[in-house]
Design a protein around this nucleic acid. Structure first.
Length: 103
DNA sequence: CTCGTGACGGTAT
DNA sequence: TATACCGCCACGA
């Protein structure tokens, strides 16, 4: 059921250590829905409280902050990450080799 | 039930 | 390196 997916996704995201990032696809795989990375973003969108769910620690497979329709949450995301000492290169991407969460 | 829409990702060009 | 497509799939109109 989809409700379980939401729980699984949230649980996994909460595991991401501070100072590290994970990709949508990575979260999807660990959560057991390898073919639906899209839902990860969808779920995070409905959980704006970074204290409860560190949504800002999720970036796309290229290490970039995914563009979203409106709002400044994308700029806010970068701030939150920089506050955790995560750095961005000139092309606005985080070095996954260095900051991606590994099990 | 059908259709359009994504905070996606892999491949081809 | 940068675009362009295409496969996927939950959701809501």
């Amino acid at each position: 059921m989809q409700h379980d997916n939401i729980q699984a996704i949230l649980t996994v995201v909460q595991q991401i250590p501070k100072g590290q990032v994970a990709t949508y696809g990575q979260i999807a795989r660990i959560a057991g829905i390898p073919k639906n990375a899209r839902q990860v973003g969808s779920v995070l969108k409905s959980h704006p409280d970074a204290k409860l769910v560190p949504w800002h620690r999720v970036v796309n497979a290229q290490g970039q902050i995914s563009t979203r329709d409106n709002s400044n949450s994308q700029y806010q995301q970068r701030e939150l990450l920089e506050q955790e000492n995560i750095m961005f290169n000139d092309s606005g991407r985080v070095d996954l080799q260095r900051f991606q969460w590994r099990l």
